[in-house]
Design a protein around this nucleic acid. Structure first.
Lengths: 144, 144
DNA sequence: TTATGTGCAAAGACTTTGCTCCTCA
DNA sequence: TGAGGAGCAAAGTCTTTGCACATAA
């Protein structure tokens, strides 16, 4: 793949891409940095940033979203969508074939050339919802 | 609206919200800052940030996306969607009633409580596409 | 009057960049 | 051997925060 792009194959690039495609957590640059350090202890964070930026340029990876000021990446190129929890910052994948087969509105087909077509939902996941309710409850009870 | 939330009505808040709902450009904090300064020359950027954050908390405004490292805001709460051009960073609205009436997949309905349901497309708009082609052409011709 | 909000300045956090040495091809 | 990449450190941006003064209610 590097050879296709006529650039050097380095252990850093191999490992960063490996971590990216194996991760299901939509990791941030720092997450990837920590994972990669397990195999390449001397790698630096800026190499991770530079490599992620290259992978994105080559279309092997993309920024899913920016959550809590951190960019989150996804190397899964198959059609899927994301729900983001604003409490725990988890990003969950889901499939939605009905969406994928929907015809795009004319405003979009005439707009330009699309790179990425996805839906994105934002909310609070049920786990965090439950935690919040408990919190409210305990505040109320302690306030009595 | 401020009174509903039991907070003070200040000229800064009024003006920031006014700019936000009137703008169709999905402005960044800095864009809003510049617009508001026309009427309130002494306003500071951190007041804009603080107010935008409040408006978001009250559900009167939301972050559409982060483009070019800047958060972009939208106070239009009616159902609509966005296409983002990665070249000129413009965000264009479009309507898509077919999407809006589509049933959500079970993975999402069971996931938690949604705040925001929208689709988001990323690509290069036709204007920038045309510019790029011209650029490539002129490079080629000058290289001859 | 008093709880809140604003301005100012400085700090924080993530990300990018210049430069030198190293390394893949 | 030579072009391109990695590491290091420092700089750049956007955004947040502490504090004193101002202000809406």
């Amino acid at each position: 793949m590097c050879r296709e792009h006529r650039i050097k194959v380095t252990p850093q690039r191999l490992e960063i891409y490996k971590v990216a495609i194996q991760s299901k957590e939509h990791p941030s640059a720092e997450d990837i940095y920590h994972s990669v350090r397990a195999k390449l202890p001397t790698i630096s964070l800026d190499t991770v940033y530079r490599t992620l930026s290259s992978l994105e340029r080559w279309g092997l990876l993309f920024k899913v979203a920016v959550v809590d000021d951190r960019s989150r990446f996804d190397a899964d190129l198959s059609p899927h969508h994301h729900v983001i929890c604003t409490e725990c910052n988890n990003i969950t994948d889901f499939l939605w074939p009905e969406f994928d087969s929907l015809a795009l509105p004319e405003d979009v087909t005439g707009w330009g050339s699309l790179k990425l077509k996805a839906s994105q939902f934002v909310g609070v996941c049920s786990k965090c919802d439950a935690k919040n309710k408990n919190k409210v409850f305990s505040i109320r009870s302690s306030a009595q």
